[in-house]
Design a protein around this nucleic acid. Sequence first.
DNA 1: GCTAAATTTGTAAGCGCTTACACTCTTCTT
DNA 2: AAGAAGAGTGTAAGCGCTTACAAATTTAGC
Lengths: 342, 342
Amino acid sequence: MAKAPRVTIQDVAALSGLSICTVSRALRGLPNVSETAQLKVADAATKLGYKASSAASRLAGGTTGSVAIIAPTATSWFFTQAVEAAEEVFADSGFDTVLISLRNTPSVHRKVFGDLDALSQRVDGVLLLNIALSDDEIDALASSGLAVASVGMHNVPWDNVGIDNEDAAWKATNHLLGLGHWDLAILSGREPGARSVVTATERLSGFRRALAEHHLTVDPDLVMDAGSSIEGGRRAMTELIENRRIPSAIFAGCDETAFGALMALRDLGLSAPKNVSIIGIDDHQMSWFLGLSTMAQPVADQGAFAANLLIEGLQRSGPLSAPASHVLDTKLIERKTTRRKR
Amino acid sequence: MAKAPRVTIQDVAALSGLSICTVSRALRGLPNVSETAQLKVADAATKLGYKASSAASRLAGGTTGSVAIIAPTATSWFFTQAVEAAEEVFADSGFDTVLISLRNTPSVHRKVFGDLDALSQRVDGVLLLNIALSDDEIDALASSGLAVASVGMHNVPWDNVGIDNEDAAWKATNHLLGLGHWDLAILSGREPGARSVVTATERLSGFRRALAEHHLTVDPDLVMDAGSSIEGGRRAMTELIENRRIPSAIFAGCDETAFGALMALRDLGLSAPKNVSIIGIDDHQMSWFLGLSTMAQPVADQGAFAANLLIEGLQRSGPLSAPASHVLDTKLIERKTTRRKR
DNA sequence: GCTAAATTTGTAAGCGCTTACACTCTTCTT
DNA sequence: AAGAAGAGTGTAAGCGCTTACAAATTTAGC
């Protein structure tokens, strides 16, 4: 199969009998192109199967036709769901998706956000998934010329979609409190050694608020950095049981953490809700199976929604209207790992 | 933050007192550059913080500095693990990773593989994860100019790494057979309506061989297309129990399918290994917790290994040596969902 | 020591696209 | 009905890099 010589804008111009310039404008839907020209160009383009060279386009000051999705890690459930949904939206809109996993590693984080020029050279926009950014990084991003949208990041100068983490945590905690549990632990926070994640901070704060409203104090011994992985949950839970004490109930920052906790429990001959009640956040696909009580959140929806916001931002490109923050609902799903304190 | 004017190769040339051309060659490690020049260029480049523009480089006939990972879907466990591992390797080698999910959708598949020109325009190489390709597609890819490497694809004209699926399935089936189960069902195959996956075909064949070696026939009623998702496993298992019959044991094409089957079982008041023994393939993170017997395979290793092969291929770029196929080991992990037939 | 060959360096022509600017035609003005 | 304004189109100059090819320099050969 011989390499077909690339179809360039020249060919389209030739076939349509117009100049390169007019073709370029027509193709990009710019004004000042007659309908006749539009049609001729569109016709010639499809006939030739023309696709603009992103490299050339980029070099000449145009766009790259690709966007980046930046996630703290690519393996945890939340991110895989969100990434898949966003990728679909991007692909359907003709964008390539560059995946960047920070791997929970500060040095990678710095490398990515420390050189936005490099980023903006390769992509037109970025979709941020629950990334904890410093004020400087936010400013830099906002003025980088890149379109930005995010999931799970509040108070940022770009469009965002997420759930109300503080509220979800508050509700989850209240569920526990309502069941008569007052000695609560939280398995959340950040991966030890990693950068903290906004989400975790907000969830912790919801947890604290719920307790405070019941005039309960948070025992520092029961606040565990468990990250958001199964392994982290397991480690934290083991540590909790072996070296601290068993609380009455546990609020896990996400379902995977709860899974890990459940494992640790079983390792030690304990179980939920017998020895301890436990609730997570997410409604992971396995949660139903494991009977895990949880606050359900629409993950794929968030990814798709944010992706669409980014694409809109890419199109509008004009004066940025005020950034909007969309909040999606969460819902308590009571299953078998939580029950009234005896 | 004013946008720093881009540092171009011109600037480096000026600072080093050499011509653009020499700088370009020096930067890319091409021959015929004196050591003195090398040093001067390297010096000037770092001093200026110079980064080549990938767009310009690409346009001029160089490389894009990015590679694509193509997966049948981005959400299933196997792929998320492999993708994360590969992305890490790519990132560490300075490549951008373009994620392309086929979403188990034939039309997407056709779109991607039907226009390799578009692909080769944006990336230097592709990493294929368990993609079922027609001979024509394989030929087209092989002669597309793209570097290619794959996971889980045998008999392809490029480097591949995978496990011996036929053998793994055979071993898993033999485990069941050895336990006295002779009435076996298989939950594998492809997502109904989707393109078949090589892996599934090979696993089915290992299953058949094991049975044949024991002079057993495969009951077509017990061969279910379950795809490789939890949902698929659940659906297939439900269908099996409700409209066909309950076999003595089940070989699930992957752990997630097995999870789904376990769910379906429980839905109907049954359980493993009481009513049916069940074994999967993968050793998913949750399998230990659920007590699922399985054939463990090193997923992240496969992704990383293949990514390295791709990078090597990218570098060598010369006459392609014979494609190598690397086979990684699998291991039977006997847990609680399989037991001797009573 | 002088030419032939090899090595290092520079010149210049693109790669395919965008865009400022110049140039036709049409339309409105008055 | 003549000039201004605007719509539609074309010309040409890059964007930053790679790469023939030519030029300059060094090295080798006899």
